[in-house]
Structure formats: structure tokens, C-alpha cells
Design a protein around this nucleic acid. Structure first.
Lengths: 232, 232
DNA sequence: AATTGTGAAATTGTTCACAGCA
DNA sequence: TGCTGTGAACAATTTCACAATT
């Protein structure tokens, strides 16, 4: 009844943060909406409905509305959401309305590939520092960035004001690298080593384990095969 | 009361598949346990308790037991689980007790890195075929595998008995590549292009969007910063 | 007429707590 | 005694359904 939150506000988003508990899945889907809105804009949509977004991403319209309503009232009843404005709003919520300085540790096959990964730059994530422990690599110029010695990780994090690091080192050295970064004040890491890193509770880590994703597929294939055989 | 499922069986696992609905998160955690068990074995553990596993992966013992019990009774009350046997059981459940032939489409920076990715081979995922649409790459030998023309995708899938494909092509051509693979009978794909692919319901797709992972971190950092400022 | 925003209901996933067993 | 396996309690997430609004 008390419609304290009903009036649309210009900048409720930030306020909403502190009011509600936002689930990880909601944040993940916000990224999805952000991309979908970009594509829909290109296709000429001026306003989009929760159904437009849902159909595109195999979600339900209610899910889309619930997710968005956690941050404010961005739509117009009877009409839908203004595509480009909503996209900008979500960008702001995700914090990608600015540049982020990122460091990458481990310039091996995967690390090198990530340096060239266009999507990062496009979203405002700039890899400003590279680190390795291989003397042959240290000092060399990789895509315009000099590879530094991982021993100088802490110093460089401060000097270059890095706020996130990407860990692309072998599993055996991932934890030590992580510890160094935590010591230097890093609060967010994207980890590609197949280990779960131990960090203090104020540090966020996302571990991307590609072998695990194939295992997931393997399970699904095996499972479906079993079903077809009609196991007793 | 009716304890039809209470008696321990030698090979209940497969039967359990058809009986219960297994959640994606459970499968994901099975992969985690599989890795943890490998590490614990190396550390000399012969039996492990649900607590050993839980502590290591920041989960609860109950969660570990629930996950495992969905597939059968692998432990001994009072003792714990036999490490190496449990690991083998999980491997079998995940379907990684055999070789999987994998194709990779898009031999760019990321694609090349994935070909060299040791974890895949270690888990039994062998990249047996590479595809690209760049005439300069086609026919060349990459880590012992000849790069084929993506036009021959369907033929090669059948010839080489590929059961999964990894999509590492630009977003704009990911859907057409996906469609070709589906046509050729592929039922599982790991997609690195930042688009959500449309597939029939009997095909599993896992989309790995690395920019999205950084966006997740960005949100967390922005959110925490907002909290510290104490936004009104 | 169309579509949002949102409490309430339904569903799904996690944790508790304890009987059962080595 | 110690630890598994599991039904029951609890928590989180998703979907429903509808009043509110343009």
C-alpha cells in the first residue's frame, strides 16, 4: 500500500543498491540485457518490452521486469522501456560507464589471447600491465604493453592504479599470485587457473574453468545417451 | 518409509540419472569435487569426509553429501569417502572416463590458445579438428592438426566422429556456424562468442562470455564503493 | 489495448538435524 | 564415537496474476 518506491526517480539506481539484496544471477542477466539492448538498438528498436528482451534471451518477461525493478522504474506502462536509455542505465549499474585499469598475470597462450580480446576494450576494460616470471618474456613489448616481472606486481598495481587483475598462470602458482595482488589492495580478480582461490571476504573472485564447462557438456551428453538406452 | 533407495548398490549411478532431477549447480559442483579429490589424493588422503571437501571449496558438508547422494551411496558412515574411488565414480558420472572428440571453429587468438590448453587433453577432451574461413590459414598445420575449411564442417564432424564443438568465431558468424553444427548432428557446444545461440532443445550450449565476467566484477567494485561512500 | 511493477504463490535449492551404521 | 544419507525446515529465486498507468 505505502507506495514509497512507486514514484519514478532520476537516480534511484544507486539508492536501490543499498536497499535490496541483489542476487548474482540478476547481475549476470543485467549483462545479458545490456548486450541484447545493444543488438536491438542496431535493429532499429526505439522502445523494447520485457517480452522482446525475454524472447531474445530465452527468459520470461516477468524475470526481466523483476530484475530491472530491483534498481528502479525504467519503463512506461503500456509502452515498454526506452532501449538506449535503459542500456545506459544498466551500463551505469554495472559500473561500465567508465574505464577500468586491468592487469594480466601470465602471458602464455591464453594470456596473450586475452590481451587481444576486443570485447574487453569495447566494454571499457583496458589491460594496462602484463606480468610474467619468464625472463625471456620480461621487458618485451606485447601489443604495446611491456611485460613486467611478476615480482613487481604490487608496485605496478599501485603505480598504474589497476583495480582488477586477470590470472592466467598455471594452477600451481595461482594462489601465490593471488596473495600478492590481495596484499597490494586488489579487490577483484578473474581467475582462469583451475583452482579455487582463497581470498578475504572483501575480495571478489570469478573463476573461469574451461575444462569444467566441457565436463558439464560431457555430463549432458552421457546423461541423454543413458536416457535413450532406457537404463534399468 | 519405503526405503527402496536405501540399499547401497554397485552401479546405482546410472539408474539414479533417470530417477532424479539433477540441477546444473550440482553438476558444476561435481566437477569441483573431482578436482579437489585429485588434489587431496596427491596430499596423501586415502579417505575424505564431506567436511574435508567442503572446507576446501567453501561449501557446506551437507551440500557435498546431498550432491553425492543424488547418484548413490559412495561413503561409509563414520569414516568418509574413499578418495580415489569416489573420484573415479564422479569421473564416470561426468562422462569423462572416456575420450571425447572435439572440433574447434575459429582459429584466431583465443582459438589457438584453446588448442594448446593442457587441461582439455588431461580430462580426455581431444581437439581432433580445426576450422576457419581464412584461406591463408586453411590447410596449414596447427599443433599437429590441419586447419580445414569451415564449409566442410558437417562432413568433418561425421568423418572424425566429433561429439562437441567449441565456437571461437566472431559474434556475427557464431549463429550460422552453430546451425551448421546442429545440422550435422552435434548435441553439445561451448560458445565463446558473446551472443546467445538459438538451438533445438536437444542440444546443450554453454556460453562463456569473458567480458560479462569482468562486468560482474565491475558491478561488485562499484557496489562496494557505493556502500563505503554511504549513498543516501 | 498494451505493458509495467510488484505482492503472493510456486518452485527450486540449501541447510538442519538426526536416525542409521561402521 | 564419527560421519553418511536423507526427510523436513528453511531460504532464495522464479513465475503468476493483477492493479496501475499510459
Amino acid at each position: 500500500m505505502n507506495s514509497k518506491r512507486t514514484q519514478a526517480g532520476t537516480d534511484q539506481a544507486v539508492a536501490a543498491f543499498s536497499r535490496r539484496r541483489i542476487s548474482d544471477s540478476t547481475i549476470r542477466r543485467l549483462s545479458v540485457y545490456y548486450r541484447a539492448l545493444g543488438a536491438l538498438e542496431v535493429e532499429g528498436y526505439h522502445t523494447v518490452s520485457s517480452r522482446d528482451l525475454a524472447d531474445r534471451e530465452k527468459l520470461t518477461p516477468a524475470q526481466v521486469r523483476k530484475d530491472l525493478s530491483a534498481f528502479g522504474s525504467f519503463g512506461t506502462r503500456g509502452l515498454g522501456y526506452p532501449a538506449s536509455e535503459l542500456r545506459a542505465r544498466i551500463g551505469k549499474i554495472l559500473g561500465i560507464d567508465r574505464e577500468w585499469n586491468v592487469g594480466l598475470v601470465g602471458v602464455g597462450h591464453l594470456g596473450s589471447a586475452l590481451v587481444s580480446y576486443k570485447e574487453f576494450q569495447k566494454q571499457g576494460f583496458t589491460i594496462r600491465a602484463l606480468f610474467d616470471n619468464d625472463q625471456r618474456k620480461i621487458g618485451s613489448n606485447h601489443k604495446g604493453v611491456i611485460i613486467a616481472d611478476v615480482k613487481d606486481l604490487a608496485a605496478e598495481i599501485k603505480k598504474r592504479k589497476l583495480s582488477m587483475i586477470i590470472i592466467a598462470v598455471p594452477a600451481s602458482v595461482a594462489q601465490p599470485v593471488c596473495d600478492m595482488a590481495v596484499q597490494a589492495g586488489i579487490k577483484a580478480m578473474l581467475n582462469f587457473a583451475p583452482v579455487s582461490l582463497k581470498v578475504p571476504s572483501d575480495v571478489v573472485v570469478r573463476t573461469e574453468n574451461m575444462a569444467m564447462e566441457l565436463e558439464f557438456l560431457s555430463f549432458q551428453l552421457s546423461n541423454r545417451a543413458a536416457k535413450e538406452r532406457g537404463s534399468a
